[in-house]
């Protein structure tokens, strides 16, 4: 029963803030609902803040071989790809790839990634894309723990 506020005014942009997301014309909730987008947003942000790694999520078609395509995406995923983790989900191809950079890989061994992937795929097989991603992110961030710089 929650839906975006329907507004016709398009004067929401100011000198310092962007226009409202509902004014940009494109349907942002075409793939996921706003509720699901909020869940993804919070999961990505909180796991990135807790671990100090940078988690990004790609949802869409991947070129074959998907591993190479995901690694190319990971190389462009931020300023420090070494400390970033990319979760690439391609629902059409039924493939999920987790790519960790060299720095992130020290805290997230491949075995931990495989376990998170396993829990993600079991949710995906039930048609729950967002739930699977959120649970996978939770597992990955639990495994990575807090960085030494954030420890009190």
């Amino acid at each position: 029963m929650t839906r975006a506020l329907e507004v016709d005014s398009h004067d929401t942009a100011t000198a310092t803030t962007g226009a409202a997301r509902t004014d940009e014309g494109s349907r942002l909730d075409e793939v996921f609902s706003y509720k699901e987008l909020a869940r993804l947003d919070e999961a990505l942000t909180m796991s990135s803040r807790e671990t100090g790694l940078r988690f990004t999520l790609y949802v869409g078609e991947l070129r074959t071989p998907t591993r190479t395509a995901a690694e190319e995406l990971h190389a462009r995923s931020g300023v420090h790809p070494s400390d970033s983790v990319l979760i690439a989900v391609s629902p059409g191809q039924r493939v999920v790839e987790v790519v960790t950079g060299a720095g992130a890989g020290r805290r997230l061994p491949d075995r931990a990634c495989a376990l998170a992937v396993l829990s993600m795929t079991s949710s995906f097989a039930n048609g729950d894309l967002v739930g699977g991603v959120v649970n996978g992110l939770r597992q990955l961030s639990d495994q990575a723990g807090h960085p030494a710089s954030l420890r009190h």
Partner: peptide, 14 residues
């Protein structure tokens, strides 16, 4: 694009 050293991770299908 910039290199991130040896990459790790995992792959899954469903």
């Amino acid at each position: 694009a910039q290199p991130a050293g040896p990459l790790g991770g995992a792959r899954g299908t469903w």
